[in-house]
Amino acid sequence: MLKVFLVLMVVFAVMAVQTPKLRQAVVYLGIFSLISSFVYLLYSAPDVAIAEAVIGSTLATILYLVALKKYAVYTIYFTDTVDSGLEEAVAARRARILELVEGFCTERELEAHVIYTAEGKEQIQQNHSYDLIVMQEGEAVTVCGSRESYHVDGIRSHLLEKDKGAGNRLRFQVQTEEEEVGP
């Protein structure tokens, strides 16, 4: 019994090293941790087994998966200064602007990570690292890109081009500079 699981541990460790895809390697590592926790149990160390099961195969796996996601993630902060999220028109407009941004992300193979927050623009700029801030003020939408982001020019031309016919009151800023578009 014990030897079978020890051999399995070696097998999964080799698989984790040899697999070409990082995500699969993380899953193999989780299985490896689970088996090792069971081996601890067979060695009659249940305390260690619980710690290994919780930390090795749950928390570490989640953290690795999140890290892999962050590898190509595009952080968008969305703020709605006029809090009227229940009205359908506003919700539709919000969905539309986010759809534009997410279309851009799909084009560039980025992972869109939208964070809804109640903080103002200055607060976000000071406290968080961001790629894009989308501010909805009733009718008007202000988009603010970070200068540190590699995709700032790309998303600017993408948004301006897609938004031409839509008649949103869209403004695009790069930190301090800003320009007016639309009616």
Partner: peptide, 9 residues
Amino acid sequence: FFRFVFYES
């Protein structure tokens, strides 16, 4: 976890 998820991009 939350510092990692929300801040360290």
